[in-house]
Design a protein around this nucleic acid. Structure first.
Lengths: 226, 226
DNA sequence: CTACAATAGTACTGATCCGTCCAGTACCAC
DNA sequence: GTGGTACTGGACGGATCAGTACTATTGTAG
């Protein structure tokens, strides 16, 4: 009786280290629920996921879910915005990548690489599909998501491009438009395909590297000064 | 008793001209059902639309739906592919638009205009959201949709760009990549925003015209020869 | 005219699911 | 201890929904 038998549902292993079945802190179960809900919502969609499934995967009573989240909609919204916040790390790196004095093409290429590899991660793609698909039922959530993720990257990129233009390395009239063009050239091919194909097939690193190079080349042909 | 009272459900007006309540041909009701189902699926999503609602909007008994379509999934698939076929008209125009001898920039700009205005139509956007959102539940359907709509436009565009390159008007190594870059530059801004914002706000024609111009300018800077 | 196929209308089955309720249990602070 | 809090486990109400059954009706082909 010292420890429960190892027949726990999968995600419950996160709390298996606890001496007993009880979570240590008040917020621990909320995190476990979030994790299980994220897994299921991303895999099966909003309507395709039941609260009972979430409770089972989290190894938690359904009542516990409702002590942490008002209802299914709030759980979903919190979950989306929480996962959207992961873009912060990337946004904070943009300035540094474009700031070092290794010329212009190399930093842009490095930025392109990182952005591509960030966006084509399966969880990110599924999150994007989910928000787009539920945009009709959660319009405010979709709008907030767009504002916090893609638009935030675009704004950061625009200000950095404008800074480079101030140094004479680039020339542009509309930095936000230039940022959109850069992102479009980099992400269109992998992202547009991935939105419709769950199992991404042709995403070998060589192809992605080629796409990054080609996108930067086109961008510099239009916005470069050399 | 000569005609039914004007309290018919909305879409039933399509058959109100018939002398009696019965459809004239066998396939007439299938078309009415399709129309109603399209309206509802696009507005409320797959899970959010019930067969009873479709029957009510179509002014048809639910049993009639099941005489024309095996089940909800088949109705949905047929509906998506049927609406996807509307891209045919545009694909057939591409060659003509890029073929007349009015230079290079003007035809490309005209193509950009038409493509933008085709894609930002609310029904097209909603169809795209719907297919993306249901890609997890209907992977084959999503794959077929991508193949028949965006990829078909890209292939057509690629072959035309290659033809222009053969005349020395453009230069490119990879026509398909060039086509992707063109589409990316043209569609990214309006499409990426629209995927997350149901009510499109800032889509005044002036802005779209500006986007078309800017996209063509960047494309020609990279792929033009003059 | 008759047989047939399509349809209307309605009720029904079986299943799912959200959210709630409740009794009992384990931990923690004091 | 004692009270408070979080949690379990199960049951359940209320609602929705896909798909079927069945009868009655109507147009149409032969």
């Amino acid at each position: 009786m010292a420890s429960p038998p190892p027949t726990l549902p999968q995600a419950a292993a996160a709390r298996a280290a606890a001496p007993t079945r009880r979570r240590t802190g008040r917020l621990a179960s909320a995190a476990v629920i979030m994790e299980a809900a994220t897994t299921l919502f991303l895999r099966k969609g909003y309507a395709g996921t039941s609260m009972d499934e979430i409770a089972a995967l989290a190894g938690v009573s359904k009542q516990t879910i409702y002590t942490h989240f008002a209802d299914k909609e709030h759980l979903f919204s919190d979950l989306i915005l929480r996962n959207a916040a992961r873009v912060d790390e990337f946004v904070e790196q943009v300035g540094g990548i474009l700031d070092d004095s290794h010329g212009l093409e190399k930093p842009l290429l490095e930025l392109a690489r990182r952005y591509i590899h960030l966006v084509i991660r399966p969880e990110v793609l599924q999150l994007r599909r989910l928000v787009i698909g539920e945009a009709g039922n959660f319009p405010d959530l979709a709008g907030t998501y767009y504002q916090r993720v893609p638009e935030r990257v675009l704004s950061t990129l625009a200000s950095n491009l404008e800074r480079l233009a101030g140094r004479g390395l680039l020339r542009m009239d509309d930095p936000m438009l230039a940022a959109n063009h850069f992102v479009a050239l980099i992400l269109w091919v992998p992202l547009d395909r991935a939105m419709f194909h769950i199992e991404q097939e042709s995403l070998e690193p060589g192809r992605l590297e080629q796409l990054a190079h080609a996108g930067v080349r086109v961008f510099l042909a239009a916005y470069g000064t050399s």
